[in-house]
């Protein structure tokens, strides 16, 4: 049970949020142009890193906004939180 600093509401219990998997996987603009393999890459392939991972979260029982979280999956330490559309922090 960690605490997430929602960029819109501030610090809240993890139970107010829902995880949405790996971040920065952009839906292809022209899916029909893609081969089966390329589409499968978008659809199924996720990194599941032990360590620093970029993730999507939504404040589902709060403001219902989606945003990005940089989390160390080995100890749940959240390194950064930033809004959708913003660039991930570089360090």
């Amino acid at each position: 049970m960690f605490v997430i600093d929602c960029p819109y509401c501030g610090e809240r219990e993890q139970s107010e949020f829902k995880a949405g998997g790996e971040a920065h996987i952009v839906r292809p603009k022209q899916p029909t142009e893609l081969s089966d393999d390329q589409w499968a890459e978008y659809l199924f392939m996720r990194k599941n890193i032990k360590g620093i991972q970029f993730e999507r979260w939504v404040h589902i029982h709060g403001c219902r906004k989606w945003f990005n979280v940089v989390r160390d999956t080995s100890n749940d330490v959240i390194k950064a939180v930033y809004k959708m559309g913003e660039k991930p922090p570089t360090n």
């Binding site: 829902k18 949405g20 952009v26 839906r27 999507r56 939504v58 589902i60 219902r64 906004k65 989606w66 959708m84 559309g85």
Partner: peptide
């Protein structure tokens, strides 16, 4: 509703 909000906010803002 959650899924529609997801697409609206993240893919088609």
């Amino acid at each position: 509703l959650g899924k529609l909000e997801d697409y609206l906010q993240t893919e088609w803002p």
